[in-house]
């Protein structure tokens, strides 16, 4: 990824400190929630690993964003930043290309995130990717896929039904 020149315009290239961005607001407005959700949905579209535009994991995503914005350290500054970075990328490259570049060819240099683009990638996109994978996205790659993944919450504790692909001895006929 580092061979590519870093994408974006003046907003994306704005220089900031590597630590979490501050913000004076204490909660996200409804439209900001929607904009963030739209970003999240693009992950599933880009990798094709979740059906129906991620609708089945929306409640998990909401819960994740709530935990990230209602308890310290707050991610509100990061979320607001990511929204404006994505808006700029879409303005510059059009919707599809913007997300393609952001996910696959962003040119962000290695090391601590010191631009607004790098913040959006590290603190928002990357965390959304991990959240999406944990919530079920892990199942959407090569088939047959595993049934469980670190952090996936898929059932009751003493359920007799295996929650993982279980070993079946050869010749057991199962």
């Amino acid at each position: 990824m580092t061979d590519t020149e870093m994408i974006g315009g003046p907003i994306s290239k704005g220089v900031v400190l590597a630590n979490l961005l501050d913000h004076e607001d204490t909660f996200l407005a409804a439209h900001q929630h929607d904009q963030l959700w739209d970003i999240f949905v693009e992950i599933g579209r880009a990798w094709g690993n979740i059906a129906n535009d991620s609708a089945s994991i929306k409640s998990s995503w909401r819960e994740f964003v709530h935990a990230k914005t209602s308890e310290p350290p707050s991610y509100i500054g990061e979320y607001v930043n990511a929204i404006s970075v994505v808006q700029e990328l879409v303005r510059l490259y059009g919707h599809e290309d913007a997300f393609h570049k952001l996910f696959f060819a962003n040119g962000i240099p290695e090391g601590p995130p010191v631009t607004r683009l790098a913040h959006a990638k590290v603190y928002v996109i990357d965390e959304f990717i991990r959240m999406q994978t944990v919530a079920g996205g892990f199942k959407g790659f090569a088939q047959p896929a595993s049934l469980n993944y670190k952090g996936y919450v898929g059932g009751s504790r003493y359920n007799e039904t295996p929650r993982v692909r279980a070993y079946t001895p050869k010749g057991s006929g199962q």
Partner: peptide, 20 residues
């Protein structure tokens, strides 16, 4: 670590190849 591969910008086909 599927999520890590996605973060690194690996495509779906690349990830599937790694899984197999």
């Amino acid at each position: 670590d599927i999520a890590k591969l996605m973060m690194q910008g690996k495509t779906r086909d690349e990830i599937n190849a790694i899984l197999g």
